[in-house]
């Protein structure tokens, strides 16, 4: 690929960064172009990604050591570039973006089930991956007591 061909794609990313109102630059690391969202809400981010016609890929959840909470990494694909936006959760809830992008439905349900993270603003169907009604037993050390709507 020539330098001329890469220019428009770079400018798309820069335009997206400006649209999001984020001052920090894109950082390429581990196969992902990362942008720290700062105070930008995940719902505003999802709206901007929809407007940019980016394809939602997945959310990766990490449980942080001790009581540090969780880190959720939201990924979208834009013209073959994998974009990443990390969100740290000091508690265990974050706004759902299911109503903005139905592609997130199953992964929000899976993280809710595996990590007991609550995606605020949506309802859950019975568990996606397992039978039963106890959340957070797959990947978390402690079993969280959370009711599941049946």
């Amino acid at each position: 690929m020539t330098a001329v061909e890469t220019l428009p794609k770079m400018s798309v990313l820069e335009a997206l960064r400006e649209t999001l109102g984020i001052a920090d630059p894109w950082v390429e690391n581990g196969g992902v172009r990362w942008l720290s969202p700062g105070t930008l809400s995940v719902r505003e981010l999802a709206k901007a990604m929809n407007a940019a016609k980016a394809r939602f890929v997945t959310i990766t959840a990490f449980q942080l050591p001790g009581d540090a909470g969780f880190r959720l990494e939201y990924h979208w694909d834009l013209d073959g570039k994998l974009l990443g936006f990390p969100y740290s959760l000091s508690g265990k809830s974050i706004e759902s973006i299911y109503d903005l992008s139905e592609a997130v439905d199953w992964i929000e349900r899976e993280i809710h089930e595996g990590f007991a993270v609550d995606f605020v603003g949506r309802e859950y169907e019975p568990l996606l991956l397992r039978q039963g009604d106890t959340l957070g037993v797959n990947l978390r050390d402690a079993v969280a007591v959370t009711e599941v709507k049946k």
Partner: peptide, 18 residues
Amino acid sequence: TGTATSRVEAPRGEVMYS
């Protein structure tokens, strides 16, 4: 130390590992 991500085009579509 860190996180790395890879994607490939499997027969059924995109597979991603983080």
